[in-house]
Design a protein around this nucleic acid. Structure first.
Lengths: 339, 339
DNA sequence: TTCATAAATGTAAACCTTTACATCAGGGGT
DNA sequence: ACCCCTGATGTAAAGGTTTACATTTATGAA
C-alpha cells in the first residue's frame, strides 16, 4: 500500500499471476479478457493501489490526455468562468486541464509549447489573442489548438467567442430604445479585435436608427478604467454632450461612471451608461451596470468540444463559432435627461 | 526542420556522428565532453531543432521539472499575484509551473494528485487550505508540498503566508491611533484559519489600549461582501453604534461600505472602515479602502523557494513562514465623528 | 618502450506502458 | 480423426531519455 515506490503494472501482474499485457488489457479493453482473470486483476489493483503512470503511458502512446490552457493573465475576470466551461467539457471526455500562465512573455509561451511538443499535453486553448511565442518563427508543427475570448491574430486557429458585433448592436439598440439619440461610443480600436467588432455593431444600430455618422461621438481609448475616466473629461470639453455612453467593455464603463460621479452627476438620471462583458464588479458599482454578458461557460464548453473533436483529424478546417450574448439589465440606463 | 515528427536525441547523434550518450552529456554535463565534439553536437541540435522530450526524461529520471499549483478558485483576487511570485522563483531555478483548478472538488484534486504521483510534476503548492482529496484516505505517499495563503488543515505541510495576527493588530491600531474606541470587528471564525488569527490581532490591540472586552463589538460573518452588508444591518439594531469597522477582509469591508452608503452615510466622515488583503477593488470603491496588504509576491517567492529546497530532502521539517504585511492608507479612515 | 592513469566516448539497461504478433487450448464442423 | 477458427493469454519491441559500466584513446612517467 503505502510503500515507498508507487506500484507498477508489474506488481499488479505478479499479484494476479498474469502477464503485464493482460493487466493492461483488463484495464483498457475489459471484454478482451476472461471474467475470472479480470476479477483477479481488479483485486490486485485494489490491493496495490496501482494507478497507471501517465508519463509512461503518454510516452508510449505519443499522446496524453491533458489539455493545456494558455492564459496571459490569470486575473482577467473573464478567464475563470470560461475556464470552468472548458474543464467541465474536457472532463466529460476523460481529459484533464492544466493552465499555463504566460504573462505575455514569449519565452514562457515557448516553454509551454515544449510541454506540448513532448506530448505532455494533447492540445491547447489560447486566451492570448496571439500565438504564445510572439513573432518568432517556430519550426515545429503546432499542436491542435483553439482560441477563445479573442481570435488569434493572423492564423487559422479555430475561434470560439461571443458575437461581438451582435452584442455591440444590442447594447446600442437598448440605449436607442430608451429614446437616446446622442450616444457616445467609448471604444478601443487597438488592443483587441473583438472591440473593433463591437464598434461595428454600434455603427450598425445607429445606421438603422438613421442617426447620421457626423452626429455620433466616438472616442478611442484602450479598454481600461482609466480610459473611461479620460473619455468623460474629453467629452466635457466639447459643446454638445451625449445623453448616453455605450462602452466597449465594462472596465471602460466603470471608468465612465466613476468620472461622471466625480463630477457630481446622478446616474442614471443625468446620463445612461452601458457596458460589455459583465464582469463581477458590474454588480457592485453604483448604479449597478447594465451590460452585455459574455456567455462564458458556453464559450468554454464549445471551445473544448471543438478542440477535442479536432484532436482526431489532421487538417482541421478553420472555424469560427460565435455565440450570441444576452443583455443584462441593471440600473445604469434610463430615459435621457431633459436639458 | 519542420518534419512531421519532432527530432529525437538519436537524430542529433547521427548528424553529429556520436552516440546518444555523448549528446546527452553534451547537454547536461558539457565539461565531460571534448570541445570539438560539443560544438558538433550543438550544431546538430541547432539544425534539427531538437528539444529534449520532457516526458521521456522524467520517466527515466523519476522526477520532472514542473511544479503543480493547486487552486480551488482561479478567480480569487489573491491568487494571481501570489502565482506570479511562485512562477518567478520557480523559473529562476529552472522549474516550470502548471496550475490545476480543483474547484474544491475532491475528485479533481485526486486527479491532479495522480498527475504528481506519476511524476509529471515534482511537487505541489496548495492554495486550498486542505488536502486536495478532501477527507478520503489516500494510500500513496504525498509529494513534497507547501501551502500558501492558508495553512493546510490538520497536516504538517509547511506554510508560507501573511502574518495575520500582526496584520489584524496593525489594522486595529491604526483605527485606535485616530482616536476610535468603539471599534467593531466584523470577523469570520469559520471559513479560514487566518481569519481567526486576524481576530486575535484585533483583540491584542484592544487589550493594549485597555478597552474592556465587553465594550468590543464582534460580529461573526463569513468573509463575503454580503456578510459585511449584513453586519451593518445587525449593528444598527443595537443601542450603541461603533465609530469604526475593523473588517476581517476587504470583501467584508466592501460590504460594510456598501451598507453604510446605502443608509446615506458619508464615509469616512461618519464611520471609518479598514479592510485586510488589498484586493484590486479596494482602489475603486468610494472612499478608497484603507487596508492591510497581503505581501503576495513575497509569499509566492518564499513559498516556492521553500518547496524547491525541500525537493531534495526527504523529511522536511514543518515550517511556517509568516511575512509582515504593510498598512495601505487610503481614504476610508478618519477621526471619529462627534455625536 | 612500456605501463598506469585519465579523459573521451560508446554500449546497453532501465524507467513503465501499450500493442503487434505468437502461442496455446478448446470447440465445432467435416 | 483432422482442421480451422476463436478466444485468452503471453512475449517482446518500442517509445526517448539518462547513466553505470565497458571500452578506447591519449598522456605522461618510469
Amino acid at each position: 500500500m503505502s510503500n515507498s515506490a508507487p506500484a507498477t503494472i508489474e506488481d499488479v501482474a505478479r499479484l494476479a499471476e498474469v502477464s503485464i499485457a493482460t493487466v493492461s488489457r483488463a484495464i483498457h479493453m475489459p471484454d478482451k479478457v476472461a471474467k475470472s482473470t479480470r476479477q483477479r486483476v481488479n483485486q490486485a489493483i485494489a490491493i496495490t493501489g496501482y494507478t497507471t503512470n501517465a508519463m509512461a503511458r503518454s510516452l508510449r502512446m505519443g499522446r496524453s490526455n491533458m489539455i493545456l490552457v494558455l492564459a496571459p493573465d490569470i486575473g482577467d475576470p473573464n478567464f475563470s468562468s470560461i475556464l470552468i466551461g472548458l474543464e467541465n467539457e474536457a472532463r466529460a471526455h476523460g481529459y484533464g486541464v492544466l493552465i499555463g500562465h504566460t504573462q505575455n512573455d514569449p519565452e514562457r509561451g515557448l516553454e509551454y509549447l515544449k510541454f506540448l511538443s513532448s506530448s505532455q499535453a494533447a492540445g491547447m486553448v489560447l486566451f492570448t489573442g496571439h500565438q504564445p511565442f510572439g513573432h518568432q518563427v517556430v519550426s515545429e508543427r503546432l499542436p491542435p489548438s483553439v482560441a477563445v475570448f479573442e481570435p488569434v491574430f493572423d492564423s487559422a486557429t479555430p475561434y470560439v467567442g461571443v458575437d461581438d458585433q451582435a452584442g455591440g448592436r444590442k447594447a446600442a439598440e437598448h440605449l436607442l430604445s430608451y429614446g437616446h439619440r446622442r450616444i457616445a461610443f467609448i471604444g478601443d480600436s487597438k488592443t483587441r479585435l473583438g472591440h473593433q467588432r463591437r464598434r461595428k455593431g454600434y455603427d450598425l444600430a445607429m445606421d438603422a436608427a438613421r442617426i447620421p455618422a457626423n452626429q455620433r461621438m466616438v472616442l478611442d481609448g484602450d479598454g481600461t478604467i482609466e480610459s473611461g475616466r479620460l473619455a468623460v473629461e474629453q467629452l466635457f470639453m466639447r459643446d454638445t454632450l451625449p445623453t448616453a455612453f455605450c462602452c466597449v467593455n465594462d472596465a471602460t464603463a466603470l471608468g465612465v461612471i466613476n468620472g461622471l460621479s466625480a463630477r457630481g452627476y446622478d446616474l442614471p438620471r443625468d446620463f445612461s451608461v452601458i457596458g460589455f462583458d459583465d464582469v463581477p464588479q458590474a454588480t457592485y458599482v453604483k448604479p449597478a451596470l447594465t451590460t452585455i454578458r459574455q456567455p462564458r461557460s458556453a464559450i468554454g464548453r464549445q471551445a473544448m468540444a471543438l478542440l477535442l473533436q479536432n484532436l482526431g483529424q489532421t487538417g482541421s478546417e478553420h472555424r469560427e463559432i460565435l455565440i450570441l450574448p444576452d443583455l443584462i439589465v441593471r440600473g445604469s440606463v434610463s430615459e435621457p435627461a431633459r436639458r
